[in-house]
Nucleic acid binder design. Structure first.
Lengths: 338, 338
DNA sequence: GTGAAAGCGCTAACAT
DNA sequence: ATGTTAGCGCTTTCAC
């Protein structure tokens, strides 16, 4: 068995309480000699307090959970880095979980984290566990990141998708594209996806471009799926019936679309232009470098963590949920033409 | 306060032990009626056992820690997915940590995880905490992934770097490249980096190509650093003094090198060929698609988790550490010429 | 300035 | 088939 506080106390010739006080930094009224003795014994035995026992008593774990939707997405990892840095600075530990965009997995992770008594939670939610999240949020502060949960009142850090889409469409139109298709993952429960689809329609309307139902396509990022959707979109005979550009609703779609277009032997942007929501480290290495609407992901992670920390320290203050909106930024590269 | 086992017991009109037995699935000799009653009360109160209290008593948390070197690296995230899937199937929880290639962070995370009483640990180690890792491994099973710790005896899952490098060099030579430079991150404590550097020299020798000290360059992935190193390498006047190809020791280097080469206005592979260790999802989208030595990362994650599970279940069996070597695979694309 | 004792929520002998 | 009891390792009143 590993060494306990009792053993430290015994060897140092003091009581457990005294060692405990030492551990928790209550030196104020402590004899310099006892203090030193305890320090020495701890060092000698290489004693480390049992966090489980401590937390069981204190009812705080100094640990925050974060559940991301898809850890393979660079978007998620950048957010994680942002969360991590801020949390670390404040002395909180982070338990990272990957829901894999699976509501069941998300639910299990939320429950596990609650069971482990985390002090706070950051979720890039699937959008399918709103009741559970709302319920947990009664006792444990939760901050949603990127994706809102429309029907519950909860702190959220996200980006102004509508503005980003507007910039994207404006840019494409300014480059002469009138036929603008949009590819997105299914947007049933994921707020940014829905917002982007709506903003796309709004932006088209603003430019007097008629919205074509068949040019708004929902797809998975499976290679076959993307390919067949794209072929349907671009494979026709009549030129007038084909879009000249594709707006991709997030980076996973963008990557898959670029891959599929190359497979089809089409050239970007001459035969088909591409613009994506989300920037990532190597978007500029792609042939051609992809024009994107970038989100300040790292900052968003920072902010979500900072907000959560405030909530966790806030005691039982009447917390009125807030939503923090970040501004997206259009990064003009080569995939839409000059 | 949240509901406890005592309350469930009270309301169900049984003792805590009985509820506990129910929770742990010891139904065998339990009255069908009590069983039902308990189930009902639990559902009514939405009772969830306190994992902290349970683990404190049981001395098992059903939780595994994983520390990756750099979560921004797709290599890490693929490994994570592999670990996750296997662990989940076996009913273990995963706490993910990102050491950010910082030995101090790694040390802190190891300690935190130990304090939290994880049942097992998977580390993609910085190589600078070997004593700590060896010590922890006395009581908690640890599996190293990707990077070995040469001086300690511990389970390891990694790839045959030497073989991969040999394939890479062979390929470049077969394409007529004799001037092969190598770029790597500092390889002080990171086993695959060291192995790849050594294998590079061995492979050159095997082809009768003299090794040039100034063509083996250590660098960070900072844009400026890479650029200046590359300029030193490729910027000279005398053609004979310049390598015609660059072997990148991992994917982070590869991405940075490609970026820098583009910035310099050079074309790949005509002016300079590039071959990288590590494949990743969108390496083929780069202009030109990068030829790489791929590692079966997901499988490696799977295997590491499986091995760890075996160790955790193995009780106090005399575990003789093993090393599992995966085979790399050369993926010929366009960055080395035809 | 330090100690004794109770208890956090749970499990696991040992009874019956 | 179920209850009683004694902790797991720590913190925290309350004494002195």
């Amino acid at each position: 068995m590993s060494v306990t506080i009792a053993e430290v106390a015994r060897i140092a010739g003091v009581s457990k309480s005294t060692v405990s006080r030492y551990l928790n930094g209550f030196y104020d009224h402590m004899g310099a000699d006892t203090k030193e003795r305890i320090a020495q014994v701890i060092a000698e035995l290489d004693y480390r307090p049992n966090a489980l026992a401590r937390s069981l008593k204190q009812k705080r774990t100094h640990t925050v959970g974060a559940i991301v939707a898809n850890i393979l997405n660079p978007f998620s990892t950048s957010i994680i880095r942002g969360i991590e840095d801020t949390l670390q600075e404040a002395g909180f530990n982070l338990i990272l979980c990957n829901a894999d965009d699976d509501p069941a997995k998300e639910r299990d992770y939320v429950n596990m984290l609650v069971d482990k008594q985390i002090d706070g939670l950051i979720i890039n939610t699937t959008g399918c566990n709103n009741e559970l999240i709302a319920q947990v949020n009664q006792t444990i502060p939760i901050v949603l990141i990127d994706r809102k949960a429309s029907d519950i009142d909860i702190d959220t850090v996200t980006v102004d998708s509508a503005r980003g889409v507007r910039q994207a469409v404006d840019h494409m139109v300014s480059l002469g594209h009138a036929g603008i298709a949009m590819l997105t993952l299914p947007y049933d429960h994921v707020s940014p996806r829905l917002e982007r689809v709506q903003a796309y329609q709004t932006a088209l309307a603003a430019h007097g471009i008629p919205f074509r139902e068949d040019w708004l396509v929902q797809t998975s990022i499976e290679e076959d799926a993307i390919l067949s959707k794209l072929q349907a979109l671009l494979g026709g005979e009549a030129i007038a019936d084909k879009p000249t550009s594709i707006f991709c609703a997030n980076n996973m779609i963008t990557m898959s679309v670029v891959k599929a277009i190359k497979q089809m032997g089409l050239t970007i942007p001459d035969e088909i232009a591409v613009l994506g929501f989300d920037d990532w480290e190597w978007a500029q290495l792609i042939d051609p470098p992809v024009t994107v609407v970038a989100q300040p992901v790292y900052d968003m992670g920072n902010k979500a963590a900072a907000l959560l920390i405030k909530r966790m320290k806030g005691g039982r203050s009447p917390k009125k949920p807030i939503t923090i909106l970040f501004e997206p930024q259009l990064l003009k590269r080569k995939s839409c033409g000059e």
